[in-house]
Amino acid sequence: MASDTTRVLSPAATAAPAAMPAAPARRRRGMVPLEPVSPTARWLLGLAFFVLFVAVWAFFTLGGYVSPTFLASPITMVQEAWLLFTEYGFLHDIGMTVWRVLGGFILAAVIAVPLGIAMGAYKPVEAFLEPFVSFCRYLPASAFIPLLILWAGIGETQKLLVIFIGSVFQIILMVAVTVGGARKDLVEAAYTLGADSAGIVRRVLIPGAAPGIAETLRLVLGWAWTYVIVAELIGSSSGIGHMITDSQALLNTGQIIFGIIVIGLIGLVSDFIFKAVNRKLFAWASL
């Protein structure tokens, strides 16, 4: 006779627990949102767009759908580019434009970065400067050209000041936002370890904001290239903008397009260089 303590288990009770349904495998067909691509694929895709752009351009111009007066073909543009380098000293124009961009941009950065750090670190300084800087940030640099010609003439100083005005206020505000977004726990920890106000700025705020400041300078450098062309359109005897103005008077769209492409290529190269330097200096920021 079975013991009273013996428990009779039903087949359902003795069966192993049912396994949970397996999660559906993620499909990888086509493009997946937020899925990264390899560096090789990124380069190939970027190059493919340029190839497609030139193909469409050649189709409409060489096919006779667009008049050469309004848009030169890629072949005509290459021929005009050769003339610019061999007969018209275009390398000198490129050098002058690069010098103006770098000169005005460096002058703006030297003044704007310390002011931005001060605004981000000290709220009284921010309250004092932020309304004026925000006001000036919306003023177009090209609107100052008539005044700058009166004040500085049509020489290099006027062109440097156009780039300076177009860059300095943007850098100040963007740097101030970057510095002001520092982690409060790091600041409190530094105070706990005995740091004073100057030490907080020097050892916590600036190192923490350095990658963001470098990224800000990279972005504003791209904007500086748009200001230099405006500066060179008026009262200039050299530079890419000067060449574009002369070509417009002659209805030479091939040279105009080539000048625009050169600006884009130089800006793209400078952007890549800036990115490479930032990755080398602040490799820890991407971890």
Rank of each mutant, 00 (worst) to 15 (best):
G180L: 00
V187C: 03
L148G: 06
I145D: 05
V177G: 12
L160V: 13
I154R: 07
K159N: 07
I149G: 03
L186D: 00
G155L: 13
V168M: 09
A182W: 00
V177F: 12
V177W: 08
V187L: 04
M174Y: 09
A176D: 01
D185C: 08
K159S: 07
Y191V: 00
V179D: 00
G155P: 02
L193V: 15
L161M: 12
S142N: 10
V175G: 03
S167G: 05
Y191Q: 02
L193K: 00
G155T: 04
F144Y: 11
P146C: 09
P146T: 07
W151R: 09
Q158Y: 11
I171S: 04
L150P: 06
E188W: 06
S142V: 12
I154K: 07
F169Y: 05
T157W: 14
L150T: 11
L193G: 12
F169E: 05
L147F: 15
V179W: 04
E156K: 13
L193F: 10
L173E: 01
T192K: 03
F164E: 14
I149V: 15
I145Q: 02
L147H: 06
V177Q: 08
I171G: 01
M174F: 08
V179Y: 02
I165G: 05
A176W: 04
E188F: 05
L150K: 11
S167R: 01
I172M: 12
P146G: 07
I171F: 04
A182L: 04
G166E: 15
G155E: 00
I154S: 14
F169C: 03
